[in-house]
Protein backbone atom coordinates (compact mmCIF):
# COMPACT_ATOMS: atom_id res chain seq x y z
CA UNK A 1 0.00 0.00 0.00
CA UNK A 2 1.38 3.35 -1.10
CA UNK A 3 1.01 6.28 1.26
CA UNK A 4 1.16 9.84 -0.01
CA UNK A 5 1.18 13.04 1.93
CA UNK A 6 -0.91 15.81 0.40
CA UNK A 7 -1.71 19.31 1.66
CA UNK A 8 -4.81 21.44 1.51
CA UNK A 9 -3.80 25.07 1.10
CA UNK A 10 -5.68 28.23 0.43
CA UNK A 11 -6.79 31.51 1.93
CA UNK A 12 -8.95 31.72 5.01
CA UNK A 13 -12.57 30.68 4.67
CA UNK A 14 -12.34 29.11 1.20
CA UNK A 15 -13.70 25.80 2.53
CA UNK A 16 -10.61 23.54 2.76
CA UNK A 17 -11.78 21.81 5.89
CA UNK A 18 -15.30 21.39 4.53
CA UNK A 19 -13.90 19.74 1.41
CA UNK A 20 -11.87 17.33 3.54
CA UNK A 21 -14.85 16.60 5.75
CA UNK A 22 -16.81 15.73 2.59
CA UNK A 23 -14.13 13.27 1.67
CA UNK A 24 -13.06 11.52 4.88
CA UNK A 25 -14.05 10.52 8.37
CA UNK A 26 -11.67 11.94 10.89
CA UNK A 27 -10.59 11.26 14.45
CA UNK A 28 -9.24 14.70 15.18
CA UNK A 29 -11.19 17.71 16.26
CA UNK A 30 -10.93 20.86 14.17
CA UNK A 31 -9.45 22.60 17.21
CA UNK A 32 -6.12 21.07 16.22
CA UNK A 33 -5.97 23.47 13.33
CA UNK A 34 -6.20 26.54 15.48
CA UNK A 35 -3.70 25.22 18.02
CA UNK A 36 -0.94 23.67 15.98
CA UNK A 37 -1.97 24.90 12.56
CA UNK A 38 -2.77 21.60 10.92
CA UNK A 39 -5.24 18.74 11.07
CA UNK A 40 -4.47 15.38 9.58
CA UNK A 41 -6.93 12.97 7.98
CA UNK A 42 -6.59 10.09 5.62
CA UNK A 43 -8.48 8.34 2.88
CA UNK A 44 -7.70 5.20 0.92
CA UNK A 45 -8.61 5.29 -2.76
CA UNK A 46 -7.82 3.54 -5.99
CA UNK A 47 -5.81 5.41 -8.58
CA UNK A 48 -4.14 4.06 -11.71
CA UNK A 49 -5.23 0.61 -10.64
CA UNK A 50 -3.40 0.64 -7.33
CA UNK A 51 -4.40 1.26 -3.75
CA UNK A 52 -3.14 4.50 -2.34
CA UNK A 53 -3.71 6.08 1.04
CA UNK A 54 -3.81 9.85 1.02
CA UNK A 55 -2.63 11.36 4.27
CA UNK A 56 -4.22 14.78 4.08
CA UNK A 57 -2.62 17.67 5.94
CA UNK A 58 -5.30 20.33 6.17
CA UNK A 59 -3.30 23.47 6.84
CA UNK A 60 -4.89 26.37 8.65
CA UNK A 61 -5.71 29.06 6.13
CA UNK A 62 -4.26 32.37 7.06
CA UNK A 63 -4.83 35.73 5.49
CA UNK A 64 -1.23 36.55 5.97
CA UNK A 65 0.36 34.16 3.48
CA UNK A 66 3.70 34.33 5.21
CA UNK A 67 2.12 32.42 8.04
CA UNK A 68 1.69 29.17 6.12
CA UNK A 69 4.28 26.89 7.65
CA UNK A 70 6.87 25.62 5.22
CA UNK A 71 7.64 22.79 7.61
CA UNK A 72 4.12 21.45 7.23
CA UNK A 73 4.50 21.37 3.46
CA UNK A 74 7.74 19.40 3.65
CA UNK A 75 7.51 15.89 2.26
CA UNK A 76 4.20 16.47 0.48
CA UNK A 77 3.76 14.65 -2.84
CA UNK A 78 1.05 16.99 -4.04
CA UNK A 79 -1.47 19.57 -2.90
CA UNK A 80 -4.90 20.96 -3.48
CA UNK A 81 -4.91 24.73 -3.91
CA UNK A 82 -8.32 25.95 -2.83
CA UNK A 83 -9.96 29.24 -3.74
CA UNK A 84 -13.46 30.62 -3.20
CA UNK A 85 -15.34 31.24 -6.42
CA UNK A 86 -17.39 33.94 -4.78
CA UNK A 87 -14.32 35.93 -3.74
CA UNK A 88 -11.88 37.01 -6.42
CA UNK A 89 -9.23 37.90 -3.85
CA UNK A 90 -8.82 34.25 -2.92
CA UNK A 91 -7.72 33.41 -6.47
CA UNK A 92 -5.05 36.04 -6.26
CA UNK A 93 -3.98 34.51 -2.98
CA UNK A 94 -3.86 31.11 -4.66
CA UNK A 95 -1.49 32.45 -7.30
CA UNK A 96 0.78 33.77 -4.62
CA UNK A 97 0.60 30.52 -2.64
CA UNK A 98 1.51 28.41 -5.65
CA UNK A 99 4.60 30.54 -6.21
CA UNK A 100 5.62 30.18 -2.59
CA UNK A 101 5.06 26.43 -2.51
CA UNK A 102 7.01 25.98 -5.73
CA UNK A 103 9.83 27.78 -3.95
CA UNK A 104 9.76 25.32 -1.04
CA UNK A 105 8.87 21.98 -2.68
CA UNK A 106 9.73 22.51 -6.31
CA UNK A 107 7.24 21.66 -9.08
CA UNK A 108 4.99 18.98 -7.56
CA UNK A 109 1.49 17.98 -8.73
CA UNK A 110 -1.37 20.21 -7.63
CA UNK A 111 -4.92 21.04 -8.64
CA UNK A 112 -6.65 24.37 -8.25
CA UNK A 113 -10.10 23.89 -6.73
CA UNK A 114 -12.52 26.76 -7.18
CA UNK A 115 -14.90 26.01 -4.36
CA UNK A 116 -18.45 27.07 -3.50
CA UNK A 117 -19.65 26.35 -7.05
CA UNK A 118 -23.16 26.18 -5.59
CA UNK A 119 -23.15 29.96 -5.02
CA UNK A 120 -23.96 30.78 -8.63
CA UNK A 121 -25.51 34.19 -7.79
CA UNK A 122 -22.35 35.46 -6.16
CA UNK A 123 -19.93 33.88 -8.61
CA UNK A 124 -17.21 36.30 -9.66
CA UNK A 125 -14.30 34.08 -10.49
CA UNK A 126 -14.79 33.41 -14.20
CA UNK A 127 -12.63 36.23 -15.46
CA UNK A 128 -9.76 35.55 -13.08
CA UNK A 129 -10.07 31.85 -13.72
CA UNK A 130 -9.73 32.34 -17.47
CA UNK A 131 -6.37 33.99 -16.86
CA UNK A 132 -5.26 31.14 -14.65
CA UNK A 133 -6.33 28.49 -17.17
CA UNK A 134 -3.99 30.15 -19.65
CA UNK A 135 -1.15 29.33 -17.23
CA UNK A 136 -1.99 25.65 -17.83
CA UNK A 137 -3.07 24.91 -14.27
CA UNK A 138 -5.33 21.91 -13.86
CA UNK A 139 -8.51 23.10 -12.16
CA UNK A 140 -11.89 21.91 -10.96
CA UNK A 141 -15.05 23.50 -9.70
CA UNK A 142 -16.12 22.02 -6.42
CA UNK A 143 -18.81 22.43 -3.85
CA UNK A 144 -18.26 21.20 -0.35
CA UNK A 145 -21.95 21.82 0.21
CA UNK A 146 -23.26 19.55 -2.53
CA UNK A 147 -20.20 17.35 -2.77
CA UNK A 148 -19.84 18.22 -6.40
CA UNK A 149 -16.31 17.60 -7.74
CA UNK A 150 -14.82 16.67 -4.37
CA UNK A 151 -14.07 12.98 -5.00
CA UNK A 152 -12.83 13.83 -8.47
CA UNK A 153 -10.40 16.40 -7.05
CA UNK A 154 -8.68 13.91 -4.76
CA UNK A 155 -8.81 11.22 -7.42
CA UNK A 156 -7.16 13.38 -10.04
CA UNK A 157 -4.48 14.57 -7.66
CA UNK A 158 -3.69 10.94 -6.75
CA UNK A 159 -3.34 10.04 -10.43
CA UNK A 160 -1.08 13.00 -11.06
CA UNK A 161 1.12 12.04 -8.10
CA UNK A 162 1.36 8.47 -9.37
CA UNK A 163 2.60 9.80 -12.67
CA UNK A 164 -0.49 9.77 -14.92
CA UNK A 165 -1.67 13.37 -15.33
CA UNK A 166 -3.95 12.44 -18.18
CA UNK A 167 -6.49 10.63 -15.96
Amino acid sequence: MIHKKICMVGACGVGKTSLVRRFVETIFDSRYQTTIGVKIDKKSIQANGQDVTLVIWDLAGEDDLAQVRASHLRGASGYLLVADGSRKSTLAAALDLERRIRGVLGPIPFILLVNKSDLTDEWEADEALAGIVRLGWPNLRTSAKTGNGVEAAFQQLACRMLGNPGD
Binding site: K5, G37, I40, W57, S71, H72
Partner: peptide, 20 residues
Amino acid sequence: VRDADLVSGMLAAIQDFVRD
Protein backbone atom coordinates in the same frame (compact mmCIF):
# COMPACT_ATOMS: atom_id res chain seq x y z
CA VAL B 1 -4.94 2.28 19.28
CA ARG B 2 -6.23 5.16 17.19
CA ASP B 3 -5.46 5.36 13.51
CA ALA B 4 -1.68 4.96 13.41
CA ASP B 5 -1.27 6.83 10.11
CA LEU B 6 -2.96 9.89 11.50
CA VAL B 7 -1.23 9.71 14.87
CA SER B 8 2.11 9.46 13.12
CA GLY B 9 1.30 12.48 10.92
CA MET B 10 0.13 14.46 13.89
CA LEU B 11 3.29 13.61 15.83
CA ALA B 12 5.35 14.92 12.92
CA ALA B 13 3.15 18.04 12.75
CA ILE B 14 3.58 18.68 16.45
CA GLN B 15 7.34 18.36 16.01
CA ASP B 16 7.16 21.04 13.31
CA PHE B 17 4.90 23.15 15.44
CA VAL B 18 7.23 23.09 18.43
CA ARG B 19 10.32 23.65 16.31
CA ASP B 20 8.75 26.56 14.43
